Amino acid sequence: MKNNFKDGYFKWLYDNTQQFNINNNISRLTLPYLDRNNDCTEIFIKFDGNRYIITDDSETLSELYLSNFNLFSSKKRTTIFNQILLSHGVKKSDDDELYITCSKEELYQKIHLLTQCMIKISDLFYTAKNTVQSLFIEDVQLFLDKNDIRYSQNVSFSGISGLTTNYDFLIPKSKNAPERIIKVVNNIDQQQTNSILFLWNDTSQARKDYLSTLYVFLQDEGKKISSSIITSMNNYDVIPVMWSKREKFTKDLVK
């Protein structure tokens, strides 16, 4: 099963990705990564001289505005937004367009980073609910600080495929434990789980010497996480951490 995971993921991605050439210089790519409305992620690739511009055509932020969610009404959310852009190498135009400019050699890596960035920003919508008093990633950080767990933030690793993946926290190895890497997910679904597992497999294969372990913190307050998601993570030696049960993992993370 594990040996077929990479091939199966690439086949699924290829079979479910659509390309439409608008003209000789602009193409639209529809990828099977779903946002919070279960819509596929769309990006536009523009060829401009000897460089490429990859853009969401302002769709990510426009969709949030249409949902009456002003991302920039909160200093906290604005700070997190800017951190997400920085960690993925993405810029925002004055027209709220998220974009990356790159060479032909960097094109596919940058497509990967932009789509990750768009999904993460869309996920910030869930911080608008009245029941949410803080950003989930900040809650996780406070949990680490409270328990004196050492960490670095916003780390990126290249996998064996050449793709670079961003993770939220890194707990370095010690004499008592190997390297532990943390991904924080506010609103999980099965497709996002599959993407996390593929990217982690890609990352971990390139970091075999570190014996790295991935912990995925899942916000489960007021919601139920599907058992199939937990099973999928367990099958690939990824450790799901339900936020409501986070204290059970303190001893493993503090080592």
Rank of each mutant, 00 (worst) to 15 (best):
M1E: 08
K2S: 05
K6E: 14
K6G: 01
Y9M: 05
K11W: 12
W12L: 12
L13C: 06
L13R: 10
N16K: 09
T17S: 03
T17I: 00
T17F: 09
N23R: 11
N24R: 12
N25Q: 03
L31F: 07
P32R: 02
Y33K: 01
D35R: 06
R36I: 14
N37K: 14
D39G: 04
I43W: 09
F47C: 06
I53R: 09
I53N: 00
I54A: 00
T55G: 08
D56N: 06
S58R: 08
E59M: 10
L61M: 08
L64Q: 10
Y65K: 13
Y65I: 08
L66V: 02
S74H: 13
K75A: 04
K75N: 13
I80R: 14
Q83I: 02
L85G: 09
S87F: 02
G89I: 05
K91L: 10
S93P: 08
D95T: 11
L98K: 08
S103M: 13
E106K: 15
Q109N: 15
I111H: 04
L114A: 00
T115Y: 14
C117S: 15
I119P: 15
K120T: 04
K120I: 07
I121S: 00
D123C: 11
L124W: 00
Y126T: 04
Y126G: 02
A128S: 12
Q133L: 15
Q133W: 15
S134L: 14
L135R: 07
I137A: 05
E138V: 04
D139M: 14
V140A: 09
L142W: 11
K146L: 11
D148A: 13
R150T: 05
S152N: 12
Q153S: 07
Q153K: 15
F157W: 11
G159P: 13
G159E: 11
I160F: 04
S161T: 13
T165R: 10
L170V: 01
L170H: 08
I171A: 02
P172A: 01
K173E: 05
K173G: 11
S174W: 15
K175D: 14
N176Q: 15
P178N: 04
E179Q: 13
I181G: 02
I182C: 11
I182Q: 03
K183H: 06
V185R: 11
V185Q: 12
D189G: 14
Q190N: 12
Q191L: 15
L197N: 14
S204G: 07
R207P: 05
K208H: 00
K208F: 05
D209P: 13
F217H: 01
Q219R: 14
K224N: 09
S226W: 02
S227A: 10
S227I: 10
S227N: 03
S227C: 06
I229S: 09
M233R: 01
D237M: 11
P240L: 07
V241K: 02
K245N: 15
F249L: 03
T250L: 04
K251I: 05
D252W: 04
V254N: 02
K255T: 02
